[in-house]
Amino acid sequence: MKKVFEKPKSLTDVPFTYCPGCHHGIIHRLVAEALDDLGIAKDTIGVAPVGCAVLAYLFFDCDIIVAAHGRAPATATGLKRVKPDNIVFTYQGDGDLASIGTAEIVHAANRSEKITVIFVNNAVYGMTGGQMAPTTLEGQITQTSPYGRDPKTMGMPIRVCELLSTLNSPGYIARVALTKPAYIVKAKKAIKKAFQFQIDGKGFSLVEVLSTCPTNWGLSPKESNEWLEQKMIPYYPLGEFKEVF
């Protein structure tokens, strides 16, 4: 029998530090598979965020820098401008990208920096213990919306793909989820397409990956997958939002 599925080469052997059932591990594997399939791992530079995935530098077998919270798109801009022949990706959570880093992601996208952004939307701040994020759903209870997110005072959740797709600069923007094998196959395709978009020099690419956070949602991994499908996907529709170059 032949081995048909194994750990991608561009992942190190370090076990993930993420909570049981958290989708970060799946996303890490999909990114690594994309790097392997496209043969670019050794030419890739990763930019890790501040958040649960700050430890990504332990897991990816390529050069990686940890950026300041929210500033990964700017750091990636600096890297890519000095090393245009290298592939640069950022890996960011929703607090990192859609809250403190909003200006950086909007302008990196608007300049159509030739970088690829893996944006993990799990509707909370994970590492710091489950506070409300810009992507927290209406009525969703978190450490800082203990009575449910109230749009009157806390605004509505931000749809990043739709927001960035209104920019007139070139870019590839898609949103995916991982709660079913079929979704995972599509997610991998989108992630590969995003990296290919960069390889072809067409411009900015971003894939928003809806992800669970069982620990901070207070749900089991199984229930978290269901919550994501029933509550997040309706508000954050999956699909490709932009492909302009």
Partner: peptide, 17 residues
Amino acid sequence: SESELAAINMVYGAAAA
């Protein structure tokens, strides 16, 4: 850049390269 703050973080990336 979009701000001085973004600029220094671009410098961080460029220097790292």
